[in-house]
């Protein structure tokens, strides 16, 4: 009655690779808990991370949509953007704060999201470590560079 759709590869050949005394190794699921698994950390980092994602997300909706509206839709659209336009906006502390806030929140929000993705999908500890190092380096670099530009922007640079 039983029709085997795919036979085990070695059965037909006669010389089996695995038998009763020599079973195939159990395929472990990714990252089973072992003795080497790091112990509990007892910090609130994940709680604050989770909360930060929600709160920054709400603020970013306002900041980013407002930013897009001003830059791309209102008052002539994208063609109006130039050095003079940026210089004019950053003359006001309000827009400086707006852009600074957007930079920090968006970068940290995105970095935390990517950290989650890396935690989920990188299977080996080494891969995870290097991907996260790269991520943190890129985040710190972008945030610091952006902050530096916003605060030291000189409209009379030429």
């Amino acid at each position: 009655m039983a029709t085997e759709t795919t036979k085990p590869a070695d059965e037909a050949a006669g010389a089996r690779e695995f038998d009763v005394d020599n079973p195939a190794p159990v395929i472990e699921p990714p990252r089973t808990r072992t003795a080497k698994t790091p112990r509990a950390t007892r910090t609130n980092f994940e709680l604050y991370g989770w909360l930060f994602m929600r709160l920054s997300g709400i603020v970013l909706v306002v900041l980013v949509l407002g930013h897009l509206l001003i830059q791309l839709v209102l008052d002539g659209g994208v063609s109006k953007i130039g050095f003079a336009f940026v210089a004019g906006r950053w003359a006001s502390p309000f827009w400086q704060t707006w852009d600074l806030l957007m930079l920090w929140l968006a970068m940290l929000h995105g970095a935390n999201g990517l950290r989650t993705v890396i935690n989920d999908y990188a299977e080996r500890a080494n891969t995870r470590f290097w991907l996260k190092t790269l991520l943190y380096a890129a985040t710190v670099f972008t945030v610091l560079l952006g902050t530096l530009v916003i605060f030291t922007f000189d409209p009379n640079i030429r």
Binding site: T6, P8, F18, D19, V26, I27
Partner: peptide, 16 residues
Amino acid sequence: YNSEVSDEPWWDDFQV
């Protein structure tokens, strides 16, 4: 899956 036969799982069809 049977580790004493193969390290690969396979599909069996049964008509009942």
